[in-house]
Amino acid sequence: MFWNRKKYPEFWNAYANSFQHKSPAFEELRFVVFDTETSGLNPKEDALLSIGAIGVRNKMIRIQDHFEAYVNPKNFKKETVEIHGIRRSGENKISEEEGIKNFLGYLNNAVLVAHHAAFDVAMINAALKRMGLPKLKNQVIDTGNLFLKSDFKEPYKEHYSLDHLAKTFNIALHDRHNAAGDAYITAQIFVKLLLHLEKKNTLSLSFLKRPAKRIGLL
């Protein structure tokens, strides 16, 4: 209800308002391929360490449209420091709030793309929750899911690592395990998957979002 509406900060309103624009044709859609670096695999307990992202439009990776932020971990458990060795030096770290705010300002209404996207989206949503904000409003595409639709899928295998995909598409694994580096690798995979999938399918957002059929289980 209108009168119940919470008062959100300006940046969130700007972000939310960007969704009022009419969605462009598929060729004109802006995709933001992103990756998060975290202290662990549990979005509720683990900390967000960095976000890296790169824009793709019409199967072109636009280097200018990039984003990279290193944040001071909020949800921080001491023991993870030793395990993940996350203490970086020399990087300009900002607060988590600042990182999220910048990311939303960069992201706007783009379609999010990530490898095993549910996890990265959950990490961002957890950070948003800590800031008292709602969840991300963007549409999401998972390259893991796209791969299942491709001819490269192997029978009875539903889960593929980023390394596996990179190897399949002959993509060099530079800057691995750095959010921006992984985002760039994922972007290359995403474009190659689009080129591959468009040979047999008509590409549309709903096609890309639709879960792959589990042919092996039928």
Partner: peptide, 11 residues
């Protein structure tokens, strides 16, 4: 220059 590059794939 690198910042202004657009990476394009062609079959």
């Amino acid at each position: 220059i690198a910042s202004e590059v657009v990476v394009q794939y062609f079959e």
